[in-house]
Design a protein around this nucleic acid. Structure first.
Length: 448
RNA sequence: GGAGGGAUGGCAGAGCGGACGAAUGCGAAGCACUUGAAAUGCUUUGGGCCAAAAGCCCCGUGGGUUCAAAUCCCACUCCCUCCGCCA
């Protein structure tokens, strides 16, 4: 959540920033009002409490001096004050809860650099990359030719080779649950090992610690990252056990140090995790239903960092570079997009998306989203660090990005690797993870 | 699933109605002593609300009793041990 003090100190500025990303003025004003009455009732309550504490002390003193009569008198007085206090206390908690509730629904304040915009149409491409062209500025980029053999959608290729079995997956779980088979399944395993090895590489000097977190989490864990309470409809909920299926490894990784105060020297802390991710996709029924474009369950490797405010921006670039590195190694054409205020995620301060080109569908697919959350999530998670100079305790900054989401990568690899004869050639970097064989044979559907 | 035990500061651990935001030990920081270190001694060392001195809150969470609760009562949550079941 946002820092309520910011809102107090600069209501006009904060309101303007939030309106920029689609929050209504009235929602902000309501919060300001609630906060004001909260502070008033806290003051009233504390004054009454102070008085009562004093009275209690004098009761004790009266008893000690054996003045039973006076003690009785004071007790009656205190009793009366106590009754008044409980009313004030009740009022106080109720406003406080109201304030917290309102606060939980207010999205993060976007960074000043975030471009204005209403929807994903207004996102700003920053650069393109293609294996033969290298980095290219947006205005200079022209999409190179893709061979006809690659202009086949991945679901057709997958079915043809028997490495994707969506029909039977539907039998098991319903639409939008994928099932990979044979080399198709092994590709996911190879990609995962490949990515984790790169993230965990010690020789970089800043390896990411590999974590295998739980996939089902408590409600508080989902609240910390901002996925609850606002977006409950998007998540799978196991009511009987009060657990939620994680939509991304960001959820458990961010809460790992929830309610803790770490030392400044601990930061920046880099983590990486492979998990399945579950999304109900409640608002998108009927869209992108074919193939692997939109799924209820998919595998993803996530990278995440905790940082101080000073380190955050640099870490953001580092995470982005990490995700880009994988795409480059895989030879996938992509662009980096600076998300506009209208498309920015609720908890995010700034986000870069990586969109990879799928020749089979002629679409740019979001395969990674790299976000800087400022202290928004850390406030929700009560995740802080003790400053090295001893000057106190501060909220951490959190950042994370996908690197990468495999379903869409799988789709693109299958499309760009497709040859005239229908076989699929996979990137050489995966060879060590595929038993040295990188071609899926058209006839036998086996790796050769 | 059954039975028991527990939840206190960075850790260990006392306190079991008022003098307790909390003994003691360990750890950490500073200072002194020392050529330096060790040892020793002294001092400091939780978080939050508030613009803030003051004031107020926090001993798992929520409620209750009381003038007064870490301490008594109730509920919940979590953790541990044993038994059962099990990948």
């Amino acid at each position: 959540m946002i820092d309520i003090r910011l809102l107090r100190d600069d209501p006009v500025g904060v309101r303007a920033s939030l309106v920029r990303r689609g929050v209504s003025e009235s929602q902000v004003d309501e919060l300001i009002e609630t906060d004001q009455s909260f502070r008033e009732s806290v003051l009233a309550r504390d004054e009454a409490r102070a008085e009562l504490n004093l009275l209690s002390k004098s009761v004790e003193a009266a008893y000690k001096s054996k003045d039973i009569e006076k003690a009785g008198e004071l007790r009656a007085q205190a009793k009366e004050l106590g009754d008044r206090l409980s009313g004030l206390e009740e009022a106080c908690t109720s406003v406080e809860n109201k304030r917290r509730e309102q606060l939980l629904y207010i999205p993060n304040i976007p960074d000043d650099h975030v471009p204005d915009g209403a929807s994903d149409q207004d996102n700003v491409p920053i650069r393109y990359w293609h294996k033969d062209l290298g980095e290219v500025l947006p205005q200079e980029f022209v999409l190179p030719e893709f061979a006809d053999s690659t202009r086949v959608p991945h679901w057709e290729i997958g079915t043809e080779l028997g490495i994707l079995d969506l029909e039977r997956a539907t039998k098991l779980s319903g639409a939008m649950f994928p099932m990979f088979r044979g080399p198709g399944s092994r590709m996911i395993r190879a990609l995962t090992a490949f990515a984790l090895d790169i993230h965990g590489d010690e020789s970089t000097g800043h390896p990411y610690e590999e974590v295998r977190p739980p996939t089902m989490v408590r409600t508080e864990t989902m609240v910390s990252t901002g996925h609850l309470p606002k977006f409950a409809d998007d998540a799978y909920h196991l009511e009987r056990d009060s657990l939620w299926a994680i939509p991304t490894a960001e959820v458990p990784l961010t809460s790992m140090y929830r309610d803790e105060i770490v030392e400044e020297s601990f930061l920046p802390k880099r983590l990486t995790a492979f998990t399945a991710c579950f999304r109900r996709e409640a608002g998108s029924a009927g869209r992108d239903t074919r193939g692997l474009l939109r799924l209820h369950e998919f595998d993803k490797v996530e990278i995440l960092a905790y940082a101080t405010a000073d380190q955050a921006q640099e870490l953001h670039q580092e995470l982005l570079a990490k995700a880009e590195e994988l795409l480059r190694l895989l030879g996938i054409t992509y662009r980096v997009v600076d998300l506009c205020t209208g498309d920015l995620g609720n908890s995010s301060k700034r986000t870069f998306d990586l969109e990879a080109y799928s020749p089979g569908t002629d679409k740019w697919l979001e395969v990674s989203s790299v976000s800087w959350f400022g202290d928004y999530q850390a406030r929700r998670a009560n995740l802080r660090y003790r400053k090295a100079d001893g000057s106190g305790v501060e909220y951490c900054h959190t950042l994370n990005g996908s690197a990468l989401a495999w379903a869409r990568i799988w789709a693109i690899l299958v499309e760009i690797g497709r040859q005239q004869d229908g076989s699929v050639v996979l990137p050489q970097v995966l060879a060590p993870y595929l038993g040295g064989k990188t071609t899926i044979d058209a006839k036998t559907s086996r790796l050769v």
